[in-house]
């Protein structure tokens, strides 16, 4: 899973097919509120939000090769920022969202410069530690975050003055922002900058000898991922109008990583599928298991590592390729 596929190798034949599938999915998602009951619509909305978090993490894990276990921190910071702003300043879209993305980026910049100096497992440890420290901060800073009670009583988002209270409208709002966020990451991934990130992932020392400074690129990627995670957090606030410390905790971070791994790191679309599975188990299956969804998720985690090293994307066979061996 840490040898993800390469966007460049998509053959010209699969590209129109992929685009057609993508279009179908978008149309299908847009039609959801018209055909699906409000509760299920809300679940799909949650999937979209978690998917956006997972995709932003994929920019780090799959494309840059930086496995983060603290990514939920920026998601949570975005959520709290949007929540606080909605309560105390304005509920008018898109201000809380933009502020959430900004806060995510800022927090990522403040912590990322330390984290991206390392790589691999060391990066994993550092992000885990940083994420947990931010979690503790949220827990102790009660005047802003509401501590362990969470931040509640958040008013509904307003669009041109009218609040979005209907589940369907709120869903479309979430879908629209998800699509924007996804498109941004897709573009970045296809840009020359994205190519540099893949180069760093595959051979960082060589990038240095080609004249690149990996640190700068990794930091920008980290901040970008933090911004989109913050955006997703802002969406979370709009959707559930409640933010708790669990939203930026270790479990959320681990589940986001799980979504990326199950889906197939480096593909961006794979993590969306992974996110769907994770949210379905946690939110739909979990309550039936007395709230012990994490047990199933843990098992899924273990199975994925053994059976699906490339995630769903590997199963789809589209980009399946064994890692080429070094010549003797």
């Amino acid at each position: 899973m840490s040898t993800p596929a390469d966007a460049e190798t998509v053959t010209t034949r699969t590209r129109p097919v992929g685009a057609a599938i993508g279009l179908l999915v978008v149309v299908g998602l847009a039609l959801v509120p018209l055909f699906v009951a409000p509760y299920e619509t809300t679940i799909i909305g949650r999937i979209l939000i978690f998917a956006l978090l997972a995709v932003s993490l994929d920019l780090l894990v799959g494309i840059t090769g930086l496995p983060s276990l603290g990514h939920a921190a920026y998601f949570g910071i975005g959520a709290y920022t949007a929540g606080w702003l909605t309560i105390n300043v304005t509920a008018e879209a898109p201000i809380p969202l933009l502020a959430a993305a900004g806060a995510g980026a800022l927090a990522a910049a403040a912590t990322g410069w330390l984290a991206v100096r390392s790589g691999g497992i060391f990066f994993l440890m550092l992000t885990l530690a940083i994420g947990e420290l931010i979690f503790q901060l949220a827990q102790s800073w009660e005047s802003v975050t509401g501590g362990s009670n969470g931040l509640y009583g958040i008013p509904a988002v307003q669009l041109a003055g009218s609040p979005l209270v209907l589940a369907g409208l709120r869903y479309w709002y979430v879908l629209a922002v998800f699509l924007i966020g996804y498109a941004v990451l897709r573009l970045v991934s296809a840009s020359p900058f994205g190519a540099v990130l893949r180069g760093i992932r595959d051979n960082e020392p060589r990038m240095r000898s080609l004249g690149y400074s990996p640190f700068r690129y990794k930091l920008v990627a980290f901040v970008l991922a933090g911004a989109v995670a913050g955006l997703a957090g802002g969406l979370l606030t709009a959707q559930q109008r409640l933010v708790t410390t669990a939203d930026l905790g270790f479990t959320t971070a681990a589940l986001a990583l799980l979504a990326v791994v199950i889906g197939g790191a480096g593909t961006l679309w794979g993590p969306c599928l992974g996110a769907a599975l994770v949210v379905l188990i946690r939110d739909a299956l979990g309550p039936r298991l007395d709230g012990h969804g994490p047990l199933v998720l843990g098992l899924v985690f273990i199975l994925t590592v053994y059976l699906l090293p490339r995630g769903f994307a590997g199963l789809a066979g589209l980009r399946f390729r064994r890692r080429p061996a070094e010549p003797a």
């Binding site: 040898t3 993800p4 596929a5 390469d6 460049e8 190798t9 190519a195 893949r198 180069g199 595959d202 051979n203 020392p205 060589r206 000898s209 390729r321 890692r323 080429p324 070094e326 010549p327």
Partner: peptide
């Protein structure tokens, strides 16, 4: 000892 970006295409 060759140091290339093995998973990436030749042109990449």
């Amino acid at each position: 000892h060759s140091s290339l970006f093995l998973p990436l295409s030749v042109q990449q």
